[in-house]
């Protein structure tokens, strides 16, 4: 496991946050420190097709070949599958598409189950993520590095194994199985199990967004607020939360996307009871097994749409945090120059 306090985040399921944070900070060195080089003033003219002889530039033929290859790879890997989802979903017409979604009670129930389970998992992990980030980014204590590494642990666990964990705990043959039966509480093969499995799988996401963010913002403002007499709720609502609100939102978006799409873990704990414990991804598989491809693709198209919306929000948030960080570093530069 790695120590994420060092700034490197090898286990991030997505490196985006690291990306959205690093480039603006790297650019933040004051203009005076930069070597006076023409490259700073030169507009990038890489794709412009001008003859290039700069030492750090690739010849045009290499450039265009690589761009073409990259487009080819992206098209085959991502674009064609994306288009195929919608094509297959609408292959039998809009009417059938609508029927497949709206007039199939089992699909509807799966949609509602996903809408119920995902927000619960997200909510649980947001509270945890914030608590963990507060403890890790604001205080130093023995075992801090270990704790930071342990947060990544669920990423190393195969989703199927994650599901199995809860079956072993709460299943009929599980550790608490007998007791749960006596008090008549169903966890496995019921929605609480789905929530548990989903929460486990998405466990590190929010914390991983917030820890580096809160480390980057530092505690100066909070210490200042406390010294000015702020109580903890004022501190939280006026200083800390406003500072990390975009980070939280970012974590929520990522966590939610993963929660809605989780398959392996929920497949194990749900028991796949049609119309009762199916989530949308499970419903996709069931329809696929029943050779109802238009139905499967209809549900898949909804999930794909959600994924695309997630990407749009993510890009917007990255753009915003990037701008805020640039603004902050510009202010810092101005202040240090003054």
């Amino acid at each position: 496991m790695s120590d994420s306090t060092s700034g490197r985040r090898p286990l991030a399921p997505r490196g985006e946050a690291a990306r959205s944070l690093t480039p603006p900070l790297a650019d933040a060195r004051p203009a005076a420190v930069r070597p006076e080089s023409a490259a700073d003033a030169a507009p990038l003219r890489v794709g412009a097709g001008t003859k290039s002889r700069r030492g750090a530039e690739d010849p045009a033929i290499v450039r265009w070949t690589l761009i073409a290859l990259a487009f080819l790879a992206m098209t085959i890997l991502v674009v064609i599958p994306l288009a195929n989802v919608f094509y297959e979903a609408f292959a039998k017409g809009v009417g059938t598409y609508w029927d497949n979604l709206y007039n199939d009670p089992d699909t509807l129930s799966a949609i509602f189950m996903t809408l119920k389970v995902a927000p619960m998992a997200v909510a649980l992990n947001v509270v945890f993520g914030f608590a963990a980030a507060w403890a890790i980014a604001r205080f130093r204590f023995p075992g801090r590095a270990l704790l930071t590494s342990l947060i990544d642990l669920p990423f190393a666990v195969s989703p199927v194994v994650a599901g199995l964990l809860f079956v072993l705990l709460f299943g009929l043959q599980g550790l608490f199985g007998q007791w749960l039966r006596e008090v008549d509480v169903k966890i496995i093969f019921a929605w609480p199990g789905l929530v548990l499995a989903t929460t486990f799988v998405t466990f590190p996401i929010v914390a991983r967004e917030l820890i580096p963010l809160m480390e980057a913002t530092g505690s100066d403002e909070e210490v200042a607020a406390v010294s000015l007499g702020a109580r903890w709720w004022q501190l939280l609502s006026r200083v800390t939360l406003p500072n990390v609100k975009w980070g939280i939102l970012y974590g929520v978006i990522l966590c939610n996307a993963r929660a809605m799409g989780e398959f392996g873990a929920v497949a194990v704990v749900s028991g796949r009871i049609t119309g009762q414990t199916d989530t949308m991804p499970l419903r996709v598989e069931k329809l696929f097994q029943e050779y109802n491809l238009p139905g499967a693709f209809a549900v898949a198209s909804v999930l794909t749409l959600l994924a695309l919306i997630t990407l749009v929000i993510k890009v917007t948030l990255e753009w915003r945090t990037r701008r805020e960080l640039e603004e902050a570093s510009r202010l810092r530069t101005l202040r240090s120059e003054a």
């Binding site: 070597p35 006076e36 080089s37 023409a38 003859k51 002889r53 700069r54 030492g55």
Partner: peptide, 16 residues
Amino acid sequence: GSGKSTLLRIIAGLEL
């Protein structure tokens, strides 16, 4: 900003 580095880079061939 006087252009001295650019002149040097042009002499070197790092800039056209």
